[in-house]
Nucleic acid binder design. Sequence first.
DNA 1: CTGTTAGCGCTTTCAT
DNA 2: ATGAAAGCGCTAACAG
Lengths: 339, 339
Amino acid sequence: MSRSKMADVARAAGVSKMTVSRALREGSVIAPATRQRILAVVERLGYAPEEAARNLSSRRSGFVAALVPSLNNPQFAETVRALTETVEGSGLQVLIGHTNYEAAREERLVGEFLRRRPEALVVTVDGHSAATRRMLAAADVPVVEMWDWPTRPVRHVVGFSNKDAARDLTRHLIERGYRRIAFVGETESDGTRGAKRRDGYAAAIRRSGLGPPRIHNHAPPPISMLQGRDALREVLRQWPDVDAVMCVSDPCAFGVLTQAQAQGIDVPGRLAVAGFGDFEVSRCCLPALTTVVVDAAEIGRRAGLLVASLRGRGNEGAVRKQELIRIPVRVEPRGSTGG
Amino acid sequence: MSRSKMADVARAAGVSKMTVSRALREGSVIAPATRQRILAVVERLGYAPEEAARNLSSRRSGFVAALVPSLNNPQFAETVRALTETVEGSGLQVLIGHTNYEAAREERLVGEFLRRRPEALVVTVDGHSAATRRMLAAADVPVVEMWDWPTRPVRHVVGFSNKDAARDLTRHLIERGYRRIAFVGETESDGTRGAKRRDGYAAAIRRSGLGPPRIHNHAPPPISMLQGRDALREVLRQWPDVDAVMCVSDPCAFGVLTQAQAQGIDVPGRLAVAGFGDFEVSRCCLPALTTVVVDAAEIGRRAGLLVASLRGRGNEGAVRKQELIRIPVRVEPRGSTGG
DNA sequence: CTGTTAGCGCTTTCAT
DNA sequence: ATGAAAGCGCTAACAG
């Protein structure tokens, strides 16, 4: 027995296919009694509409495509969760892709996702390739960039300035009296968020006349906790007099903190440590890590609301508009910088 | 100018639609010269095939649906990553959903995903509702259950026994000389993986004649690091003489460890701590946490290989088969239990 | 409120 | 190696 289709339901209910279609669609005009009868038949036959046919006919996929660097990152996971739960109220499903922080992989995925005719494309700002930028600009679906504040946005933005946030964090360290501040970052430098944070650090150091920035580019992103431990060893070797280490992200900072403790270096007494992102581990560990608090869920939620508002009748007009949504972030001083 | 379709490409290249279709499909018979010419036109027009039409016509969606409890869990994220990267070689895309550990949400998502006609459905064993079980059993696509070893599998399985692993971990604690071992778990009990781990603990305690199990069901899953800190306070209040705490998962264990250190309780001297899952934090922290090592990527990879092998011409036969793939896990003793 | 007619853009199937 | 015809299962657009 093959899977039943709309015509089978129509026959069994004694109506036309079109009436069945209407019975299954929320806001359509149909007699309540007819709908009841049809839904009963649907239930009995175990009928489920074929999305592909629906999509082809209606020219809407019901998809939103979202690209993040990694799923294995609590921040992006939280953004994706919030995005998903926000748009599913509008009957949309999120197609998630991960770039592994690789521009080439991102390029391929953008192409594949575009074939699925998503109703919107949400991407994480992280140094797109030229081809990716071209595809995004040419795409006939709304594009939302998130997690940074691009200098030249493709269309919509939901983000914050990683550079400014890192600069503020550096200033916090300086205000607390630290003077020989090192930065542990990633080797990538092509418009990635990590590079922006490094730039913010370097700008603050230079403007404060603290001499040349002490930058240790440890590895390609993402830098893990265990790599953070290695990184501190190298920083201490290169700048034995360092009194503070600022990290490109919280996992890295946790590694640095742990390595300091393993070597009997008092934090924050002899060494301050700061991270970026407000991962749970930073709030839980001893001492708690000073970090930049980013509301990852809010980014996903705002992106979702934007996407949801972009579809529907007003579509044609809405697609032309450009929304730039700034998500507030803040430095949160905690024990690791002498709080 | 509207987006070009296959007929436009065919016209521009002076061939039929069918020939264009063949040019775009890997293993189809077509003159190399013709293909070259067509691909050039495709490039020039920026043509991209409409997946929905392809799906409808060919009756294959190119999708694999995967359901995990949470994306914000490094283990599931890693499984999803490996699954995705394994199947994308076969031209499949993974549609990811998260249940938030809620059976009702899972039920809804299984229904929605099934409408997309995925070529396989991969679900995490975590106490399905009766309706979910029914849908899975009735689904005309291969179903893979992962991350546990169900007593009555729906079809394919890629997993391990959470209960046996927890029992082994408990025995490890007993062998190390701990006698007053508490378990910090989740409040859910309906076939979840957390419940299986608790059962494994309880079985080992009973069999060793160590008196009644000391179970503290702290909160619904997932238990966070910060909740782990709370949990230790409550465990110490209830059983002041406890000498070991075994946790349902690593984040919880890290919280317990941190809280012990915050209270000046020596780990492992006065209190042992153990987790489950081998999250990175457990390997990085001081002392490192004894845990059950689960190769999350291997689960995703094996599930992906299984899914990829299930499609294609041999399909009809293959669908009837049942593969039960056991993923080896092991207790890894580390500093937190006196290693 | 319900039905009829025409496709949506591709692939299948069969010719040639 | 290529083409022509016939749908895939649904919804848009109009009629009644």
